[in-house]
Design a protein around this nucleic acid. Structure first.
Length: 520
RNA sequence: CGGGGUGUAGCGCAGUCUGGUUAGCGCGCCUGCUUUGGGAGCAGGAUGUCGGAGGUUCGAAUCCUCUCACCCCGACCA
């Protein structure tokens, strides 16, 4: 531990190492980027390097723990938003917007909620130069203020279910931040619904969890485990919390989305009542669910490699880049003309209903090799190289971002072939991630066995594992797991293992195994 | 909040211990020419409140005092 501490300090501080390594261009034949740390060397440094070289974001160093999402990173967020928003609309939700500032007293109405969020609140105490009578908190989440308005909007069973979603920013005063994974301010969506019965609310909670899981797998190519959080890990104010858990390339877990069954907790706190068909007044049953810009962190750590970002085609802002190669002006004119024609044909193709986004990199003064690296670092799924030799032969050279080798393809029928490659890449990224998840999931039948698997060293070397253990849902058991610097990630909704067993800590019988892992 | 570290050009750093020309180096950037099938070469050029304030001194990036910010490690978290 102390060894890695001092190494970090050196790199951060007076270390000339990083600077030297990045100065002179390495021979192009080395195949290893000189600007990106290898995953096996230092996974955290690799992650930062991929973000920098991929031009996704940077730390907003003037605001503690905040980040600037740069255009390329924001374009990915926009793709995520567009797809999720469509799914929310299809499930009957409507978008709305509630205030950023929430009266402090609102937070206090729900005891668990205020206890959970107090440590990370940013509070506004002065407005217009005057001390406010009641401070406002900057929303860490919106259950309270939405509860307040739901109480005004809901009168009868005819107003239910009420299905609302909000796209917003939130602020949580985090002590330790990492780009995308945990920042003081982040972007997310928060769904908030109100229902007439507990069963309906529970069904909604699970329905939206399923929406997240399907999105993660089919669009992000990131396999997830759907599960219930332990009572110790649940959202402050929820009856039950559910999550999708993904595994990063180093074997660490990432909670990629959450869905909460709030029961009547907020209904009671904010007096959200409705008159049912029996003319009785009852509190509504609520849910809330969210995913955030953290998904981009998960995306990076799921697929990217030592050359930089790798994007699944369905989330790539640019699907195909065409790099023209030429010497003379005559060659340039001929190659560019063919490149533009090809781009036009490619744009007529549709991937998951969306027209292909194609860019011709006709910048002058950069050699082709420079452009290859440029777009590879940004994760563009497919590159086409087009030069005089190709024109003469009626072909193009094709390089898939996730493949080692180039292939030569005839121009005739190329758009269809490109589309097929993109579809294959989307599929194969998911397959590879699934295989990784499978291979790094193991069983343990005792605390000692679990501890051995989760040994600090093995996780730091990229050997993180999901360990399936029988464990009682009890705060004391969660605490015991924390001693291993790991946590109970979830109790899977689908038990893919061997059913009931005895808790490895208490020895009591439990219904199924839980996922235990080190996590972000 | 505890422990550690760093603030010098857009980025990465040297210079600080031992005060003294015009504060350097690499990358990047700008201009020109030659290049262009895997990170181009040469020539020329622009860019600094040395984190801030105060002090010591003939003289401060360098010494002293105070202060601010950020980063890393831990306890908390989408």
């Amino acid at each position: 531990m102390s060894q890695s501490d001092s190494d970090k300090g050196k790199q951060q501080g007076g270390g000339a190492r990083a600077g030297e390594g990045r100065s002179a261009g390495r021979p192009a034949t080395s195949g290893q980027s000189d600007k990106i740390t290898a995953r096996t060397e230092d996974f955290a440094a690799w992650y930062q390097d991929v973000i920098r070289q991929g031009d996704l974001a940077e730390a907003a160093e003037v605001v503690k723990g905040a980040m600037v999402i740069k255009p390329h990173g924001y374009a990915i967020w926009e793709k995520i938003q567009a797809d999720l928003d469509r799914r929310f609309k299809e499930t009957g939700h409507k978008n709305a917007y509630f205030p950023l500032l929430i009266p402090e007293s609102f937070l206090r109405r729900e005891a668990e909620h205020v206890e959970g969020f107090s440590p990370e609140l940013a509070v506004v105490t002065i407005g217009g130069g005057k001390t406010l009578e009641e401070p406002y908190v900057i929303r860490p989440t919106s259950e309270t203020i939405i509860g307040h308005f739901f109480a005004r909007w809901i009168e009868s069973w005819r107003d239910l279910p009420l299905l609302i979603n909000q796209w917003a920013n939130v602020v949580r005063w985090e002590l330790r931040t990492r780009l995308f994974l945990r920042t003081t301010e982040f972007l997310w969506q928060e769904g908030h619904t109100a229902h007439a019965t507990a069963e309906e609310a529970r069904a909604e909670t699970l329905r939206m969890l399923g929406v997240y899981a399907d999105f993660a797998e089919s669009v992000m190519a990131m396999p997830v485990i759907q599960g219930r959080k332990t009572q110790a890990e649940k959202f402050a104010g929820a009856v039950h919390s559910f999550a999708i858990e993904a595994m990063m390339q180093n074997g660490l877990a990432l909670q990629a989305g959450t869905s909460h069954d709030l029961g009547q907790n907020f209904g009671k706190a904010f007096n959200v009542r409705f008159q049912n068909k029996d003319k009785e007044l009852d509190y509504v049953w609520q849910t809330s669910w969210g995913v955030s810009t953290r998904l981009i962190g998960g995306l990076i750590m799921s697929h990217s490699d030592d050359q930089g970002l790798v994007l699944p085609p369905r989330l790539a802002p640019i699907h195909v880049v065409i790099v023209p190669i030429y010497r003379s002006d005559e060659e340039r004119a001929a190659v560019l003309e063919q490149a533009q024609r090809l781009a036009t044909d490619l744009r007529a193709q549709r991937l998951a209903g969306q027209a292909l986004s194609v860019e011709v990199d006709d910048r002058e003064g950069y050699k082709p090799g420079f452009k290859y690296f440029h777009w590879e670092q940004r994760g563009v799924p497919l590159r086409l190289e087009l030069g005089p030799r190709d024109l003469a032969a009626g072909q193009a050279v094709c390089k898939r971002r996730d493949a080692a080798a180039k292939q030569t393809l005839p121009l005739a029928g190329l758009p269809e072939r490109v589309l097929a490659e993109l579809e294959a890449m989307q599929r194969e990224l998911l397959d590879r991630a699934r295989q990784r998840l499978r291979e790094h999931t193991v069983l343990a039948n005792s605390f000692e066995e679990l501890a051995a698997i989760l040994e600090p060293a093995s996780a730091e070397q990229g050997g993180g594992k999901f360990v399936m253990v029988h464990l009682k849902d009890d705060a004391a058991c969660d605490a015991k797991i924390k001693e291993l610097k790991a946590s109970v990630r979830c109790l899977p909704l689908v038990d893919a293992h061997d059913g009931p067993g005895k808790c490895i800590i208490t020895g009591e019988p439990v219904a199924q195994r839980a996922v235990v892992a080190k996590a972000y």
